[in-house]
Amino acid sequence: MKARVFVTLKNGVLDPQGKAIGHALNGLGFESVGEVRQGKVIDLDLSETDAAKAKASLKEMCEKLLANTVIEKYEIEIR
């Protein structure tokens, strides 16, 4: 089973990298670009075949390591 985890900054947490990307896009002429926020994508191969179990285990991985829940939120996608 394959899974994808998205880790992004929580709303309200300043994202200076996103801001710099936004400025750069504006500089390239993409004037419609407003706020930009960036994050991480983590792809995982799992030997688990039960989707519910995989999801529970991925949630634990996010809480313990993949995300720092003080500043980040995460979304799990089973594919």
Partner: peptide, 8 residues
């Protein structure tokens, strides 16, 4: 938490 410096 400690985050990226505001000035990058």
């Amino acid at each position: 938490a400690l985050m990226r410096n505001a000035g990058l």
